[in-house]
């Protein structure tokens, strides 16, 4: 796989949110305002970059048995570092992201990339993969939040949109709007990419795997990627 492809994979073809349907919780929760979504995207990208690099560096040291705890500790460390930095230098975003900031630890994208990519690729490849996935995640969040903020609140980054300000659909900024916009975005991607409708029929263990979406429910693929249920 070429370096460029490693980088661009995450942005379009394997977009973590829209195609792999990972990291849905923060996507839905913080996409009410474009600025929050951007903050969340950058924070998650920083964590992903850090954890991918460290896990890739240590991939020959960490043994199979303790790999998950090792990954979790590494990821949690980076999450805490990001929390501290945001708390110190970007207090508004820190407050807006609230509980979803520590919850980056359990963002399936990050553990998923550690398992599926970083622990078997070189540091350079893992870095590129993290940057690509991070940009894909940030971009999706940003687009979704922009839609929700512009139509739901009539503003965008503090700018008031003339007509929409008086005719905003406030439900879009509330919980149901999150599900709705997310559903429509995935449908749009399906249509645009002329994907066959994303069909995920799992059986057995794969059905319950949080990362099932990333391997399309193919059990053999699941095992090959080292995802264990």
């Amino acid at each position: 796989m070429g370096k460029l492809q490693t980088l661009t994979n995450g942005i379009i073809k394997e977009n973590p949110v829209l195609v792999l349907v990972l990291g849905t919780c923060p996507t839905l929760a913080v996409s009410t305002q474009a600025s929050n979504a951007f903050g969340m995207g950058v924070a998650a990208t920083a964590v992903l970059l850090g954890s991918n690099i460290v896990i890739s560096l240590l991939r020959n040291v960490i043994s199979e048995k303790v790999r998950i705890p090792c990954y979790i500790v590494t990821i949690a460390t980076f999450v805490t570092l990001v929390q501290m930095v945001l708390n110190a230098y970007a207090y508004d975003i820190y407050k807006a992201l609230g509980i979803y900031l520590p919850l980056i630890v359990v963002n399936c994208i990050i553990l998923g990339r550690a398992e599926a990519f970083a622990n078997k690729h070189s540091v350079l490849d893992s870095t590129l993969d993290a940057i690509g996935m991070g940009i894909g995640f940030t971009l999706t969040l940003f687009v979704m939040a922009s839609i929700r903020e512009i139509f739901g609140n009539g503003t965008w980054y503090g700018i008031e949109i003339p007509v929409l300000k008086d005719n905003h659909i406030s439900i879009l900024t509330m919980a149901p709007g999150g599900f709705f916009v997310f559903g429509c975005l995935i449908a749009a991607v399906n249509k645009w990419a002329r994907h066959k409708p994303v069909k995920r029929d799992f059986d057995g263990g794969c059905e319950t795997c949080p990362m099932a979406a990333s391997c399309g429910g193919d059990k053999a693929q699941c095992e090959k990627e080292g995802v264990q249920v």
């Binding site: 240590l58 040291v61 960490i62 043994s63 048995k65 303790v66 705890p69 090792c70 500790v73 590494t74």
Partner: peptide, 9 residues
């Protein structure tokens, strides 16, 4: 070894 690595991390 695994325990040592995990502890070290």
């Amino acid at each position: 070894l695994p325990i040592a690595v995990l502890t070290a991390i």
